[in-house]
Design a protein around this nucleic acid. Structure first.
Lengths: 100, 100
DNA sequence: TTTATATATCGGAAATTATAGATATGTGTG
DNA sequence: CACACATATCTATAATTTCCGATATATAAA
């Protein structure tokens, strides 16, 4: 972790919706309905579910999630036509260690 | 710690200068000259030293530091005409716990 | 009380971010 | 291949943030 990346993460955490998404993804089963095709949350939650819950537009949420992945906060996995997002606990730890 | 305050902290960490200040304040003696009047760093570093090191204007740094104090990242202590800033480790810990 | 120094606040121009709609791309299905 | 659906990217406008100079306030010293 370095200052530049840490600041990029800070930018993601400077918006309530993005911060909220990171919180929701701590416990996907508690905040999202089960996936019909994929029977588990091992790779996180699909973009559509996250988008519906935030009530922001699809393009906005897609951009948010892309940026959160770019700076390492999230990990994206594609299964067929769906993208699933989960927390990247390794980077999150590096970030909190960097602050502390 | 709650989402709103955590996001305010995120805003402070979304700017490289502010993030850098928080890092410098981990080890004041390493990054700043000794204070002439105050013989220790127990209450942190004065605004002027921080401002000089960043090379941004006095008004900008003053605003930065005020905001960082408002959201709980820093603690401000006045000694005479100087204000000294130090990290608020308690809030920082609450923030990192909130993320994790 | 006047002056000098340290910090805070105000007002505004420039830069960046937020957010949406339109469109493009990727992928499974008929 | 054509279609439907999930996601990504492009473009543009509104909102927010950055950052400064000017000015105000607080405190100490003369």
């Amino acid at each position: 972790m370095n200052l530049k990346i840490a600041t990029e993460i800070g930018k993601c955490l400077s918006n309530q919706t993005r911060f909220q998404i990171l919180e929701w993804l701590k416990e996907p089963e508690k905040h999202f309905p089960p996936h019909e095709t994929l029977k588990h949350f091992n790779d996180g939650v699909c973009v559509t579910y996250i988008q519906e819950k935030t009530a922001l537009s699809q393009s906005t949420i897609s951009t948010y999630l892309t940026n959160m992945e770019k700076c390492g906060l999230l990990i994206s996995t594609r299964h067929g036509k769906w993208s699933y997002l989960k927390r990247n606990e390794k980077t999150i730890k590096e970030f909190t260690d960097f602050i502390t």
